[in-house]
Amino acid sequence: MEIDSNLQQITSTLQARAGSSVNVILEKNFPGKRIAGGKYNMGTHTITMYIDEIKRQCKMLFSSLENFYEYFAVVFAHELGHAEDEELEALAERMDTADDYERKKLALQIEENAWCIAKELIPEIDSNFTRQIIQESLLSYRDQVKTETVSVPACIIP
């Protein structure tokens, strides 16, 4: 598959901005059933971005692909947030021994941490656009722990 040079530029720029040594793979489709735009593998320190899934997400949320490159940048910044999160390993280890509710709270914390880091990497992207993506992304995690928006970390609120 030939990769769009704009996507490669976005990943290189954000990776450099983050000072990250993470490996980046751009693929066409996510191999599973859910719509996953990107995935960070802590074991291999690799981010895999699923381009068609990101397009689907963008269309679902914004009804068009007009802002696809910005949407891609936000999703990639989020995955970079996971890769650069200094707390990730400890939080992931705590999940191994946590009960179901605690695991859900830890999963929410992991996602919020990644978004806090991501926001720092994409200051040029409209904060309302980013906020809409973040809110949609965190919705299912918050629903599982019944967390209200008021508990959102300050770094996520523009």
Rank of each mutant, 00 (worst) to 15 (best):
K55P: 04
A73F: 12
E79N: 11
A83W: 08
G32Y: 05
G32N: 03
K55Y: 05
L26K: 11
V74N: 05
F76T: 13
A154Y: 06
A154M: 10
V150C: 14
C155R: 15
Q57R: 15
E79V: 13
R34T: 12
V24W: 06
T147H: 02
K39I: 09
S63R: 15
P158Y: 04
E124S: 08
L61F: 04
H82L: 05
E86H: 13
K28R: 15
N29D: 13
V145R: 04
I134W: 01
I125Q: 07
W115C: 00
R103A: 03
Q109A: 11
S20Q: 08
P123N: 02
C58I: 09
T44L: 13
Q57K: 14
L91S: 05
Y69T: 05
K119S: 04
L14W: 09
I51R: 08
A90F: 08
Q109T: 12
V150Y: 12
V22L: 04
Q144D: 07
I35M: 13
G43R: 12
E111T: 01
A16M: 10
N67A: 10
L14P: 04
Y71K: 14
Y69I: 11
E148W: 03
T48V: 12
M42T: 05
K33C: 00
N29L: 08
C58F: 06
N29C: 05
E27R: 15
P31L: 06
P123K: 00
D143T: 03
K105I: 05
S137F: 01
E66R: 15
T149Y: 06
D96F: 02
D4T: 14
I122D: 00
